[in-house]
């Protein structure tokens, strides 16, 4: 009898375990989202799109809980990762790392606790620390404007470029831009300076470019925020030689200008929407709810935006 109960007990236990592990796929998913605080237009968009994903997905899937944390710097982000694991008990993480190198170790700690990790935008230095990688296409971000400017200038002209903040991401974009312009050797890059993805700095750098170079055909502003400063500086100096100002990322103000055709210097843009955080959260949440994994690498393509397709890139409610 005793033996029988033992067997039965073991069976029940086994069944119970079976049920639990079988159910694990339909278990609740607590998804942590770790992103930078809104310090400029683009990160403002990241925060907004993360919020949209939370609202939409939590309504659709009752078993899903999304916790969003914003951090002002890499050390703060590392601390938040610890909190997400120990306090919020997350079992999935979507992270937009501040820096690749300094967050690789903290993220790998999280992964070793059994959390499913999706890294967004900036790849970690050790890819073993992540399960999946979702990113925009930085090469296309530089290549598309390079090709566009080369073609529109008819293969000949002077270009100046603005750069963002010294990062690998910025290098990748600028190198792609230079490479694309090699196809049209008579289009020369006169110089490129950092303007920190910032309107005011872009204004100053452009003023000085205008003082220095008497004839410029196109300016690669490399960001829609910087393009605002570039246009103001051009207007102030009353310079009409600049025919193209190419921004980038598809901020709503820039897309609106493109759609309305209100500034003839802005004829094209390249998409690099902060919406990829929304895509990453959605892909991760839906895969984990089904107990599936994501492909190791998902690249959200950057495409040329012109007046014809501008509408599908216009999100009036987003702050970006």
């Amino acid at each position: 009898m005793k033996r029988f109960t033992q067997v039965l007990g073991a069976g029940v236990l086994a069944l119970a375990f079976g049920a639990i592990s079988g159910n694990a796929v339909a278990e609740k998913v607590t998804l942590g989202v770790s992103i930078p605080t809104a310090t400029h237009g683009f990160t403002g968009g990241i925060v907004w799109w993360a919020g949209e994903a939370k609202k939409e997905l939590e309504k659709k899937y009752p078993d899903l809980k999304v916790i969003i944390k914003t951090a002002g710097g890499a050390p703060e982000q590392a601390n938040q990762l610890q909190d997400l694991v120990t306090v919020n008990k997350i079992n999935a993480l979507v992270i937009f790392p501040f820096e690749s190198a300094s967050l690789t170790q903290p993220v790998s700690q999280v992964k070793s606790k059994g959390v499913y990790v999706t890294v967004v935008d900036r790849g970690l230095t050790d890819t073993r620390a992540q399960d999946a990688y979702v990113a925009g296409d930085n090469t296309a971000f530089g290549k598309i404007p390079g090709e566009y400017i080369g073609k529109t200038l008819g293969g000949k002209g002077n270009v100046v470029a603005l750069r963002g903040i010294p990062t690998t991401l910025d290098n990748e974009r600028y190198e792609a831009f230079q490479t694309a312009l090699k196809a049209t050797p008579d289009v020369k890059i006169l110089d490129a300076k950092y303007a920190n993805w910032n309107r005011d700095d872009a204004f100053k750098v452009t003023q000085d470019f205008l003082t220095r170079f008497k004839h410029i055909d196109a300016i690669w502003a490399a960001d829609d925020d910087m393009a605002v400063g570039v246009l103001k500086a051009l207007d102030q100096a009353k310079r009409t030689d600049v025919k193209i100002v190419f921004g980038g990322a598809g901020a709503k103000g820039a897309i609106k200008t493109l759609m309305d055709g209100s500034d003839k210097r802005i004829q094209a843009n390249v998409s690099y929407s902060p919406k990829f955080i929304y895509d990453a959260i959605k892909l991760t949440a839906e895969a984990r709810l089904k107990g599936e994994a994501l492909p190791a690498k998902t690249i959200i393509p950057s495409v040329l935006i012109t007046k014809e397709n501008a509408k599908q890139f216009y999100f009036p409610n987003s702050p970006f």
Binding site: T37, A38, G44, G45, D225, G253, S318, P319, F320
Partner: peptide, 11 residues
């Protein structure tokens, strides 16, 4: 300011 601007720009 960031709150007023909703993280974006006030124009």
């Amino acid at each position: 300011l960031t709150y007023l601007a909703d993280g974006g720009a006030l124009t």
